[in-house]
């Protein structure tokens, strides 16, 4: 059995009195590609945001790449270096060029020299197929291009794990494919990925495992074909009926 990239053990979290994450147990192996789906408000985003501590869990253990997430700031910094994240609304830094967006963290967190950081950045910008936009500002790019920059920015830190929080939900329909292509390419390169997404074609194509969440719990998980063809829980069935028309 291969090593674990992310382990969540009996994780619980509340917003005030609202129980957002209920007894989450999850073990993600290195190189695994997981797609998480579920109705809105089911806690999918909260779960993956706990992995890089954008949200704090209140009970249970989360261990990322062997590092336990406690209140220790040093551990949190270490985890964030290993985990890249792509947001629904891109969250690029609007006052920096595309290239500067990509070199910011390598230079200030990993303390790489500028030339090296720029070289890495250009490598990943080529990989997401927009090296020619390097000197533009995010505001001058289309949504799809911005999201690809966001992916390149995350990759520049050489993360071992990538988190995707609904990366295509804020995009116009014609731009979804260019982002998914990059993600597929990434998956085929062997990256450990956790994606919150409703792109079921993507799930079938690259995922090793699909997780269905509802009301803060993991209700069902399975390998993609079984999951789509033969869902077990009635809640999963209902959800799949609704999104697959």
């Amino acid at each position: 059995m291969t090593e674990s990239a992310v382990v969540m053990k009996s994780v619980n979290k509340w917003y005030g009195q609202f129980h957002v994450l209920r007894d989450i147990n999850l073990d993600v192996k290195k190189g695994e590609r997981i797609v998480i789906c579920g109705p809105s408000g089911s806690g999918k985003s909260t779960m993956i945001r706990c992995i890089n501590r954008l949200e704090e869990h209140q009970q249970g253990d989360i261990i990322v790449d062997g590092i336990p997430l406690t209140t220790n700031v040093k551990n949190i910094d270490d985890v964030r270096r290993e985990v890249g994240m792509v947001f629904q609304h891109f969250n690029l830094f609007p006052h920096l060029t595309v290239l500067e967006n990509c070199t910011l963290a390598p230079m200030w967190v990993r303390k790489e020299p500028k030339a090296q950081a720029e070289e890495t950045a250009m490598k990943f910008l080529k990989r997401v197929k927009i090296p020619e936009q390097a000197l533009k500002y995010p505001g001058q790019l289309s949504g799809g291009q911005q999201q690809r920059v966001a992916i390149a920015r995350a990759l520049c830190m050489n993360p071992k794990i990538m988190l995707f929080d609904e990366p295509t939900s804020a995009l116009d329909p014609e731009m979804i494919k260019e982002v998914l292509d990059v993600m597929v390419d990434l998956a085929q390169g062997g990256m450990t990925m956790l994606c919150v997404t409703h792109e079921m074609a993507f799930a079938r194509q690259v995922a090793n495992r699909v997780i269905f969440m509802d009301q803060g719990q993991i209700v069902e998980q399975n390998e993609p074909n079984e999951f789509f063809l033969n869902p077990q829980s009635p809640r999963t069935k209902l959800f799949l009926e609704q999104i697959l028309h």
Binding site: R80, G84, F93, A150
Partner: peptide, 18 residues
Amino acid sequence: IPKGQYEASMAVGLSYWR
């Protein structure tokens, strides 16, 4: 400044002052 900017900075590992 939208919340996303803080989140993205934290996600790439910047400290508070950085």
